[in-house]
Simulated assay, not measured.
Amino acid sequence: MNRSQHSLALTTKDAAKLVGVDYRTIKLGIENGTIPTVQLGPRRMIPRVPLLRHFGINA
Rank of each mutant, 00 (worst) to 15 (best):
9 A>D: 06
37 T>G: 01
31 E>T: 04
52 L>A: 11
24 R>E: 12
45 M>F: 03
30 I>Y: 05
37 T>A: 03
30 I>L: 14
48 R>H: 02
6 H>K: 06
26 I>N: 06
40 L>M: 13
44 R>G: 02
10 L>K: 11
55 F>W: 05
6 H>V: 10
11 T>I: 01
34 T>D: 12
47 P>Y: 09
36 P>T: 11
36 P>V: 10
12 T>V: 15
10 L>V: 08
50 P>E: 06
58 N>M: 13
45 M>N: 04
16 A>Q: 01
19 V>T: 12
46 I>S: 00
36 P>D: 12
7 S>C: 11
53 R>Q: 15
45 M>T: 08
2 N>I: 07
41 G>N: 03
21 V>P: 02
13 K>I: 11
55 F>E: 03
37 T>E: 01
29 G>Y: 09
25 T>E: 13
26 I>F: 08
46 I>Q: 00
53 R>P: 05
5 Q>W: 08
59 A>I: 11
25 T>Y: 10
54 H>Q: 14
24 R>V: 10
32 N>Q: 06
49 V>P: 00
56 G>L: 01
47 P>E: 00
18 L>D: 04
53 R>H: 13
35 I>K: 02
4 S>I: 02
52 L>R: 09
32 N>D: 14
28 L>N: 13
44 R>F: 01
26 I>V: 12
35 I>S: 07
4 S>D: 11
26 I>E: 07
19 V>L: 00
33 G>Y: 12
39 Q>P: 05
12 T>S: 10
7 S>L: 14
20 G>C: 05
49 V>Y: 01
21 V>Y: 00
2 N>Q: 11
42 P>W: 06
17 K>T: 08
46 I>A: 00
44 R>E: 09
39 Q>R: 15
49 V>D: 12
14 D>Q: 15
29 G>C: 09
54 H>M: 03
5 Q>D: 11
44 R>A: 04
41 G>V: 06
27 K>S: 13
31 E>R: 13
53 R>L: 15
22 D>M: 08
52 L>E: 14
32 N>L: 03
12 T>W: 04
28 L>Y: 14
18 L>R: 13
36 P>K: 15
38 V>Y: 09
23 Y>I: 01
32 N>R: 14
15 A>G: 02
15 A>S: 07
33 G>V: 10
3 R>V: 07
41 G>F: 05
42 P>L: 08
50 P>S: 05
39 Q>V: 13
9 A>M: 10
56 G>R: 01
15 A>Y: 04
32 N>A: 00
56 G>Y: 02
10 L>C: 03
43 R>G: 04
56 G>S: 00
29 G>T: 10
49 V>F: 03
54 H>C: 06
7 S>P: 03
10 L>A: 04
57 I>H: 05
8 L>C: 04
37 T>S: 12
